[in-house]
Design a protein around this nucleic acid. Structure first.
Lengths: 197, 197
DNA sequence: CCACATCTGTAGCGTTCACTACATATATGG
DNA sequence: CCATATATGTAGTGAACGCTACAGATGTGG
C-alpha cells in the first residue's frame, strides 16, 4: 500500500546530510533554522514535518555522524596490531581535519563544548556517542593484551582514555588552525608513549 | 584633579571577574547581556559605558583570564626540572577541572570551539592567548635541553605542542564529565612518553 | 548656586530566534 | 469525481537578543 497524501519533494537522507554539515561546522546553538533550511533546500514547515524540531534534527544528525564514524573505525579495528590501528587512526583523523573545506573538528567535541557547562539536554546523547568510540578502543586493546601485544600492567581502559584524550586535543588544535605537520608531530609523540618492549 | 561627573557605584574589576565567570561557563555566544548584567549586579547602560559592548567585554575577560593563568604557569616554570614542572602542571589543571563548582574546561578551549568554524573575530585573540602559554612550555623545554635534561633529538616546540594537545584534550574530557581519577590516569600515560633515559 | 559631566534605572528600539497558522497543491482510497 | 491525508510556500507569531534614548540622580569646577 502506498502512503496517502502529497509526497515530499525532497530526499530526507540528503537533507539530513546537509544539516549534519551545518551543525558540524557551527555547533548546535550556533546554527539557526534559517541556515538549515537554506542549506537543506527546504522551507521551515517541511523541516518541522520531517524532523520534528531543531533539537530532534540535531540528534538525528548526530546519529548519522556516529554511524559514519563507526564504519570508519570498525574498518581500522581489523589492522593486524593495535599499534598499527592507532597509527592509522591518527593518520585518518589528521588527514581529515587538515584538509581544506572539511570541518576542522570532531562534531562531538564541538557539541560537548558548545552545549552549556553541564546539564544540557544534548550532553547525555553526545557523551553516549563518545563512549561508544572509546569502547571500541577498549575492546581492541583488550584483544591486544590477550595476544601479548600489550604488557600485563596496562589497563585497556586507561590506554583508551589516554588516546581518546589526545584525539580530542587534536580536534581542539585543528579547530584553532594547527597544520597537518604539527598534528603529525603530536601523533608521533603520542605514539612514543606506546607501552611495551 | 578628581574626575568630573557622577562616580560609578560598582567596582569595575569585581564586575569583570563576574563576567569572566559567566563567559567561562557558558562561552561567548551562550552568554546573554541579561545574564551578564544580573551576575555583575549592574544595568545594561552601566555595562556598555564601562566595557564598550559584549565583544569588548569578552576580550577584557579573556585578558583577565590569561593574566591569572600566566601567573600560575610562571610559578610552575621555576620547578627544578621540566618533567617536575609538567607533572605539577597536570596536577594543578586536574585539581581545578575536577573540583565541584569550578568550570570544567579551559576558557580558551571552549571559546575556540564555540566561535564558528573559522574567521570569527575573536578567534585570533584566543589563538594568541593559547600561543602565549605554549611559548612558555617551549622556553622551559629549551632550557631543559640546554641543561641536558632532554635529549638532542627532541624539538622543544614539538614537545610543547604535544603536551598542550593533551591538556586541551583533558579540558574536553573534563567538560564531558571525566572524573579526577580518569584524568590522573591520562596524565600518567602522557608522562610515560616523556623523552630521555 | 549654577553649569557641566558622568552614572543609573526604566523602558523600548530594531532584529533575529525557533516555530506555526493558513491557504494551496498533490497524492491516495473509494 | 470526491473525500481524505500529507507536503508546500508565505507570512507572521511571541520571545529573546544586543543595544540605546531618555530622564533623573550625583558628583566636580567655577
Amino acid at each position: 500500500m502506498g502512503t496517502m497524501g502529497r509526497p515530499r519533494e525532497f530526499d530526507a537522507k540528503q537533507a539530513l546530510d546537509k544539516a549534519l554539515d551545518v551543525f558540524w561546522r557551527h555547533g548546535y546553538e550556533g546554527t539557526s533554522i534559517s541556515e538549515l533550511t537554506h542549506a537543506m533546500g527546504i522551507s521551515p514547515p517541511s523541516l518541522y514535518a520531517a524532523f520534528g524540531n531543531k533539537e530532534k534534527l540535531f540528534r538525528s544528525a548526530l546519529d548519522r555522524y556516529a554511524e559514519v564514524r563507526k564504519q570508519v573505525w570498525t574498518e581500522l579495528m581489523s589492522e593486524p596490531t593495535a599499534r598499527a590501528m592507532m597509527e592509522r587512526l591518527f593518520d585518518r583523523v589528521i588527514g581529515f581535519y587538515a584538509t581544506e573545506g572539511n570541518p576542522h573538528c570532531c562534531m562531538l567535541v564541538k557539541g560537548t563544548l558548545t552545549s552549556g557547562d553541564c546539564g544540557h539536554v544534548l550532553a547525555d546523547h553526545m557523551s553516549a556517542k563518545r563512549a561508544e568510540s572509546e569502547q571500541m578502543l577498549v575492546e581492541r586493546f583488550t584483544k591486544a593484551k590477550a595476544s601479548g601485544e600489550l604488557p600485563e600492567e596496562i589497563e585497556p581502559k586507561d590506554l583508551a582514555g589516554y588516546y581518546m584524550t589526545v584525539l580530542d586535543g587534536m580536534s581542539v588544535r585543528a579547530a584553532s588552525g594547527a597544520s597537518r605537520d604539527e598534528l603529525r608531530k603530536v601523533a608521533a609523540l603520542a605514539m612514543r608513549g606506546w607501552p611495551g618492549q
